[in-house]
Structure formats: C-alpha cells, structure tokens
C-alpha cells in the first residue's frame, strides 16, 4: 500500500514524513520520526502512556490515525525540556520520586502539562481528574499529584 506524505509541527519543528495508511500516530512518531518519548503501553487507550498534545489538547496517540495530524501541532514529552534545562514538571517528578519504573511518566507529564497550560493553580482534585486516564502501577499516584502541585507553584513563581 502506498505511503502517505504528511506534514505537522512536532515540538515546534516542521516535520514531514511518509506514514503507513491506517498507521497510528504513536507508531509513526516512534518508528518514522524517531521520537521515542511517547510509550506504547496497551494499544487500547486504557493506560495513557502514549498521551501527546494535539493543538494543546491531550489525546492518545495510539488511537489517532496518523494521517489525521496533517497541519496540526503535536507536543510530546521529548520537547518539554529547553536544552539542558528540564521542564519544571519533569524536575518536580525527578525530585519528588514521582517516577519509579518511569513508563507512565511521559504520558503523565503531557496530561499534567495540558492541565497547567489551562489552569495555573489546580486543586488536588483537578489534578487527579486531569491524570485519570493515565495508569501508574508503581507510585500510588500521590507522589505524582504532589509533584504536579510543586511544579505549578514553581511555574507561578517564575512568571511573577
């Protein structure tokens, strides 16, 4: 089957690739583009490890038909850091032991980023809701919620 050329903006960079027809965005990001930050967990949208932002909104890249992102803006965990500086969310995850095996972190971070982009001081309940589609089997979630609270504080401090 002929591959299809598509162009989109990945983490701020214009990106053009040939995608498999019927291929999902996660596979294309990982195999074709080489961005290994979104993870393949379940392939059913249940675990959230493949969460990326499409035009700023979290979506499950394993369930997105790759060719549908033509002209769209995609953000992944691979684009969060600025050079050597980790994003405040990434920093808070590391310092607060919000990652153990780390497999869910990439999706958690993107779900959290989508929340903080919209709401600079979320409550713990709002955070739990925002990450409710992301499974973590190590931490019991509390350290993740703590880390997002800390990151939000640090980001507010940075902007004031």
């Amino acid at each position: 089957m002929a591959k299809k050329p598509i162009s989109f903006v990945l983490n701020g960079q214009d990106t053009s690739v040939f995608v498999e027809q019927g291929g999902n965005l996660l596979d294309e990001l990982r195999r074709t583009v080489g961005d290994l930050s979104p993870k393949f967990g379940c392939g059913q949208g249940t675990c959230g490890a493949c969460t990326v932002l499409i035009n700023g909104e979290p979506q499950l890249s394993c369930l997105v038909l790759a060719e549908r992102v033509e002209g769209q803006r995609i953000d992944t965990n691979g684009g969060l850091a600025e050079g050597p500086d980790l994003h405040p969310l990434q920093k808070a995850f590391v310092e607060g032991f919000a990652a153990q095996c780390g497999f869910c972190s990439s999706g958690m971070l993107m779900a959290a980023k989508a929340l903080l982009d919209r709401n600079a001081s979320p409550s713990r309940d709002e955070i739990a809701e925002a990450i409710s589609g992301n499974l973590c089997r190590c931490t019991g979630y509390e350290p993740i919620i703590d880390a997002i609270v800390v990151a939000a504080e640090n980001m507010r401090r940075r902007t004031t």
Binding site: G43, G45, L60, C62, V64, L65
Partner: peptide, 20 residues
Amino acid sequence: GTLLMRKVNYGDQSFNQLVQ
C-alpha cells in the same frame, strides 16, 4: 477512532478499509 483504532492495533481482520 477510540474503539475502531483499538481493532486496527490488534489486527482485526474483519475490515481493511477505513472511511472518513
């Protein structure tokens, strides 16, 4: 695609065309 792409990912053989 939240239900249909699951089938695609798991190799469902009952269809080979997606119409959008």
